[in-house]
């Protein structure tokens, strides 16, 4: 074990000529792979209104309302959602699924409650 002064010198100097590791995010979007837990998508036709997703949601973020016979509507509170996708697992009928959508920030609080 030899002690050296300035062990990182070579690495830093070579970094001078490298491209920075920083990703210039809003200008250049990262590629999101398909398993990403983004905003949940809702397939109306498949929903039977069993409410398992509502019961299991740890953050009380999703609500299913009946609008007519065998017709349902889902409301998602994005400000509460923790993107665990428990609802997707809980749904035995495949009415909920994950999407890659992750840019959900907004300055307007009212936009955080969305009808799916």
């Amino acid at each position: 074990m030899s002690k050296k002064l300035g062990k990182m010198l070579a690495e830093t100097i070579s970094s001078l000529f490298k491209k920075p590791a920083t990703s210039s995010y809003p200008f250049k979007k990262r590629e999101i792979h398909k398993h990403y837990n983004g905003k949940v998508a809702y397939i109306k036709e498949k929903c039977v209104g069993c409410n398992m997703c509502v019961r299991n949601c740890p953050a009380k973020a999703i609500f299913i309302t009946k609008i007519a016979d065998k017709q349902f509507e889902a409301t998602l509170h994005l400000d509460r959602c923790i993107f665990c996708s428990q609802c997707v697992i809980s749904c035995k009928f495949g009415a909920l699924k994950n999407t890659n959508e992750f840019e959900l920030a907004t300055g307007d609080k009212s936009k955080l409650v969305v009808k799916l």
Binding site: H33, H35, Y36, N37, I82, F83, C84, S85, Q86, N98
Partner: peptide
């Protein structure tokens, strides 16, 4: 981790 689990921090 994001690739395997879908999240970067709380993997669920």
């Amino acid at each position: 981790l994001a690739l395997l689990t879908g999240n970067r921090v709380n993997y669920a």
